[in-house]
Structure formats: C-alpha cells, structure tokens
Nucleic acid binder design. Sequence first.
DNA 1: GCACTAAACGGATGAACCATCCGCTTCATT
DNA 2: AATGAAGCGGATGGTTCATCCGTTTAGTGC
Lengths: 200, 200
Amino acid sequence: MELLSVYAGEVTASPLRKDAARNRQRIIEIGRKLVADGTPIQLNEVARAVGVGVATVYRHFPTPQALIEAVAVDGLEALIQAAERAVEQDDPWTAFRDFLVRIVDAQLSDAALSPVLSAPTTALPGTAHLLDQLSSLFTQLFERAEAAGRLAPGITLADMTPLICGIAFSARMHPAVDPQEQAAVGRHYLDVVLNGLRAR
Amino acid sequence: MELLSVYAGEVTASPLRKDAARNRQRIIEIGRKLVADGTPIQLNEVARAVGVGVATVYRHFPTPQALIEAVAVDGLEALIQAAERAVEQDDPWTAFRDFLVRIVDAQLSDAALSPVLSAPTTALPGTAHLLDQLSSLFTQLFERAEAAGRLAPGITLADMTPLICGIAFSARMHPAVDPQEQAAVGRHYLDVVLNGLRAR
DNA sequence: GCACTAAACGGATGAACCATCCGCTTCATT
DNA sequence: AATGAAGCGGATGGTTCATCCGTTTAGTGC
C-alpha cells in the first residue's frame, strides 16, 4: 500500500526524499530568477546553474512550462487569498473591481503568472487545482456584480479571463521604465476596460 | 555606380535577378501558408517545402521574423489604404472607430499582422517604413477624435497601440471555433474598450 | 550565339540545443 | 550494517540551426 502525502501544495503517490525535495526547491529558486529576468527557460541551463545533473531537473519538471507552473504557485496562492478576502467585501462592485486591480497588478509584477493564467487549464497539470479554486471564487465575484446590475449587458463570465490577460498584455507592450510605472499603466488600462464594462 | 530600384515595396542597392525574385516569392508564399496555419516558422523546413537550398532562404530572410514581416506587407498596405479612407471621413469618431474595427479584424484574420504590429518598430527593418505611414495616419485619426472632445481625459495616443493589440490578444485567447465567431469576439472586446475610451 | 562576370544557388557541415537512458550513489528502514 | 528503493549524474544520440564555399545560372557586351 502506498501512503498519500501532501507537499508543495500537491497530493502525490509518495513523499520526496529529503535530498530530492532540496533539489526541487533549488531548481524552483533558479527558475524564479530566470522568469523574473525574462530569460527563456532552458532545462539544461537550469541544471548547470543549480549544480545538478540534467536528469534531476527533467525528473522534477519535464518541460520549461512545468517549472514555470511551479514558480507561479506562490503567486496563485496569494491571488486565491485575495479573492477570498474580496468575497467577504460588502459591495459587489468594489469587491469585483479591487480583485481585478489585484490580478492585473500580480501579472505585471510576477512574470510567471501570465503564462499560467493565459494557458488553457487542460495544459496545466501542476496548477489546475489552484486555478479551479481561483476560478470558482472569481465566478462568485462576477455573479454578485452581475446580480447587482453593475455590469453592462452582454458581458459574460467567459469574457473576463481574456480581457484581464489582454490588459496585462497591453501594459507589458507599453514601454515602461520601472515596475512602478508599469503597474500604473496596467491600472490605467484596467480603468478603461472597467469603464467599458460598467452598466450605466 | 549602382542603380537604386524598387521592388517588393523596398528600396535596395540593386534589383534581384529573375530567379532570385521568383524564389523570394515562393518562399513568401509558403511562409504565408505556415503563418496562416499557426505553424511555427523553421527556415530549414521552409527551404524543404519550397524545394530550394537552405542558404537561399537564409539569404532572403535571415530570421523567421523577417519572413513574417514580408508576409505581413500585404495586410499592412491594406490597413494603410483603410486608414487613408478613414481620414476622408467627416465624423471624427466614426472614422476613429471604424478604423479600430478594421485593425482588430485584420489582426484576427491575418496572423502575420499581430507580431508586426506588437513588436517595437526598431526590431522591424523590413516594415518600419509601412508602420511609420500607418502610424502617421492613425495619429491624425486619434487627434481628430480627441480635438472633437470624443475621448475621455487621460487617454493618450501612446495608449492606443497597446490597447488595440491587447484586444486582439484577448480575442485570440477566447476559445472561438470558426473565424467568423472570433471576429465577433474581437468586435465585442473592442466595443468594451471603445465604451471605456469615450468621453461622457 | 559566345564569353565572361557577378549574382545566386545548394547542401554538407559544425555548433547548439534537447531529453533519455542506465550504471552509480544516497537515503530511509529494519 | 544490510538492503532495497529512490534519486542522481552526465554521456550520448537525435534534432534543429545557420554558415561557408564550390558550383551553377542569369545578365551583359561583343
């Protein structure tokens, strides 16, 4: 019989050996650095940087995408917490808007989030579970705003993810010098879209 | 002394030999097909498909990006014509809006346009000239709309390209089956943004 | 038509990148 | 301390990339 165990936010068939867990963490750390620098992730290169054999990296993360997912976990968990706080909010529109501000900002400050939030959930074995949680919380926020009559007619839940990711895309396109300025640009574009989404 | 000559929309140091011009066209044709299918462009593979040596392809297009640019030329020229017609329009807002509809639609129906419109002009030796033309026409459309007081305060010309490309990005993210449906989604997102851009 | 030059061609080739496989090492358990 | 399972490393074969150079062909002058 195999024991089930939870680590790194995932349920798996058996716990990692101590050295393996350590290596995994190191790999994620380097991955985080590369993602932050915008360097394209090459698994062989990651292995060299960690000081570990290639196979070790490939065993933990068969593709660069998988490593990016692992790097994104922290950010996703923070977003889930933010969404949980938002559903506590009394005013539906404020809750909805504040969470959108948060998610746009998060995408701009954490480069690992965009690829995860933009990809079809089916392609994300490592984070599907977190994305489902986030999606379910966001659905509540959306439906409350809708029920309160704050959204323009014709806007559906399915429109929201594309629009949010589009805003982040726009902000990243806009040549901004420092991160702070980029956040401001993202906020500006979000305001435009929110303005367009709102019922009048 | 070298003669200057114009072909394929570019001014160069000397005209292409007939066989070279023919090959160039064939390469672009295959490139167009690949781009349309969403297949990532591999220059060696293009050579094989055209039935020509690799060197021939690399001579004409040193990078996949360069080939994409060449493929995008037709679409860019069509957009320039559309912009020229738009500046003839009497109503500033109609002209502005109709052109935006056009440019979003073009990006969704011609996959070569997005990378060219989204990239920094500096990285586009082959189409910079067309993009400048387009940009200058669009500036007129924007400034007329602005002068007519149709734009919300705080919206600048520099915001427009990112916003437009963001809309196309959003529409491409939205899982749409047929191209017609995708165009409708793009139009929908554009309406949201236009709604947010408009002065009230 | 022929000779000649410069332009263009082709594809062999070495460099770079990728990911697997398997013999060896380390951890955990008794 | 013995043992089996889990993990490790890196050599290696496969693939993709892009250059270089010997050969071919188009254009030009006669």
